[in-house]
Nucleic acid binder design. Structure first.
Lengths: 188, 188
DNA sequence: GGGTCGATGACAGTCACTGACATCGAGAGT
DNA sequence: ACTCTCGATGTCAGTGACTGTCATCGACCC
């Protein structure tokens, strides 16, 4: 492994989230993050492409999980139902990480650069979901619109979960958001 | 006015778009932009907050135009119809600037940082539209969903306009995208 | 002709990020 | 045990985005 302690990558991510939360993103230097992790600034940039990316390391896995669940949905499932299966899979990952999700969300919403990065991650997720739906035979622009709707549903449910009382279940809040979307689409 | 020639801000924007198109965004330094505009690097940052913002100077005016058109829609107009009026107003602005829009769009899509910035501008637009709809009495989450849908419609129409033949009309392509959205929402 | 004020220039400084090269540590092979 | 290899880390110099500060210029006012 590395030259000293193991899990350098994880230590850097923890140090970064901690410092961003304590002092704010802009007031934290990469050198400080590396120091708290017992590493050097140069090593930080070997693990993360830039100062923002350290907060989004898990987004690739999450996207793959979401996409796979949609791809593995029953062939005859409607687009919105396939997306619901993906949403369920993603919710399961977050279930026991609420404190982490809360801290991370607070840091991101407090800084414009980090919000930018989150938006492009969500756009990437949306594009991947649209691709997957197209492979299931969904035509454009229905595939893209359904994918964006699915992402919006997750955003709404996730934010309510972050703000909600301890005992609320993310999966349930996301299901409720999905129900609201169905109502809006069916209504007016 | 300024120390030398007038319109320093516009000259900087022109120089930036030109250099970004010729060499690419990353290969262009702010010092080069300033030099082409006959100014210094420091003055660039007095006019634009950062190297990306020079491509998004007009987005604030565009957002205000869009929002005002929606706010001024007849009281009894449905959310989607109010948004259609806003879309129409925005299209009019672009009508005679197709070469500029094309060049700008090519530069932005070629660079991840610039795509990030565009996404946050669109998110800001969506939030402002949602606020406006709420003032018109539209409840959540219908207001946010309608606003995001309106922005998606513009994106689709705009991209087809950029890629289309010279004689296609932006307003018409946006109307077509809106029609497709209505069909998808009403369908499945 | 002098004074005021906003816009610009000049300059030093911080920090994100990169390339090049040296070095360490662990495991493989002997 | 000894050496070799190789990936991960350290070190250092450098570029460029961005900022704070102060001097200076040019237009307008009186």
């Amino acid at each position: 492994m590395g030259r000293w302690e193991p899990n350098a990558r994880e230590r850097l991510a923890e140090a970064a989230l901690g410092l961003y939360g304590e002092r704010g993103y802009e007031q934290t230097t990469v050198a400080e993050i590396a120091k708290r992790a017992g590493l050097t600034e140069r090593t930080f940039f070997r693990h993360y492409a830039d100062k923002r990316e350290v907060l989004f390391a898990g987004s690739r896995d999450l996207q793959e999980l979401f996409v796979r669940a949609v791809a593995d949905a029953p062939e005859n499932a409607a687009p919105i139902d396939a997306l619901a299966l993906g949403l369920h899979a993603v919710c399961a990952v977050f279930a026991d990480r609420r404190p982490f999700a809360r801290a991370r969300h607070a840091v991101i919403t407090a800084n414009a650069e980090l919000r930018e990065r989150e938006l492009i991650k969500l756009a990437s997720l949306s594009a991947a979901l649209a691709d997957t739906l197209r492979l299931r035979g969904v035509a454009e622009p229905a595939a893209s619109l359904a994918a964006e709707a699915g992402v919006s549903v997750f955003k709404v449910g996730f934010e309510r979960w972050i703000a909600a009382a301890e005992d609320r279940d993310l999966a349930q809040l996301v299901r409720e958001a999905l129900t609201e979307l169905r109502a809006v689409a069916a209504g007016s």
